[in-house]
């Protein structure tokens, strides 16, 4: 004999599904969603429909009180770490001269940019990097002498790559963009930035 009747089973199933959907929901509250949908419009490379689909990390970090120590945070970070694409060994460090240009450029993905603008990294907006560049921001830590201070070991290469690819894999809700994960920069561009930070010949490490 079946102890639980079918309608009750169905209800339990719905509850379980409902709860798990809640826990991982990336949907916005309807009133807020409507506000965004009516008040914003697609332009250039920024498409509203795409913009309104938050990924789980964006949803999590949009709450005004975020628990960055909790289980949810650890889960999101470990998922993000698994999704990092690393280059082959020996292929981490590109051309620092190109890297410097990418670090300087703030172009790309703004509504006034054209679709084919080559995206920059805009690292100087937030970081000190080369000593000569005095117009740097302070939202992030100084990266001057990055390699000189940390060394050029495989662990450092791997960590730094991961950090540029997806900083939130190591610190959830970091203010730094997820350059690799969100496709802001290409693998090639990230290699060149690695060169800027981790080539012993780069002026950053003089």
């Amino acid at each position: 004999m079946n102890l639980v009747s079918r309608p009750i089973k169905f209800t339990i199933l719905c509850l379980v599904l409902g709860v798990s959907k809640l826990a991982f929901s990336t949907e916005l509250n309807p009133q807020f969603h409507e506000l965004l949908e009516n008040g914003l419009r697609s332009k250039g490379p920024v498409q509203l429909e795409f913009f309104l689909q938050l990924d789980p990390i964006q949803k999590f970090c949009s709450e005004s009180s975020v628990d960055i120590q909790g289980d949810k945070a650890s889960l999101l970070m470990s998922e993000a770490r698994q999704q990092i694409q690393y280059p082959d060994d020996g292929d981490y460090v590109g051309d620092w001269r190109e890297g410097e240009k990418i670090a300087q450029s703030g172009k790309g993905l703004r509504f006034n940019d054209s679709d084919d603008t080559k995206n920059g990294g805009n690292c100087y907006a937030c970081h000190q990097i080369r000593k000569e560049e005095l117009a740097y921001g302070t939202l992030g830590p100084s990266l001057y002498q990055y390699g000189k201070l940390r060394g050029y070991s495989k662990e450092i290469l791997r960590y730094t790559w991961g950090k540029i690819f997806n900083p939130q894999a190591f610190l959830i809700c970091s203010n730094m963009p997820r350059y690799g994960h969100k496709g802001i920069l290409t693998m090639e561009q990230m290699r060149d930035l690695m060169g800027l930070l981790l080539d012993p010949e780069s002026p950053v490490n003089e």
Partner: peptide, 29 residues
């Protein structure tokens, strides 16, 4: 609603108002 928008992080760079306007003595460039 305005408060929600201030904390809302989205788009290609995950930026919200909160990214740039929640710490003391910060600069962009």
């Amino acid at each position: 609603l305005g408060k929600q928008l201030f904390y809302f992080r989205a788009g290609s760079h995950d930026f919200g108002c909160i990214t740039c306007h929640s710490g003391d003595n910060k600069r962009i460039r």
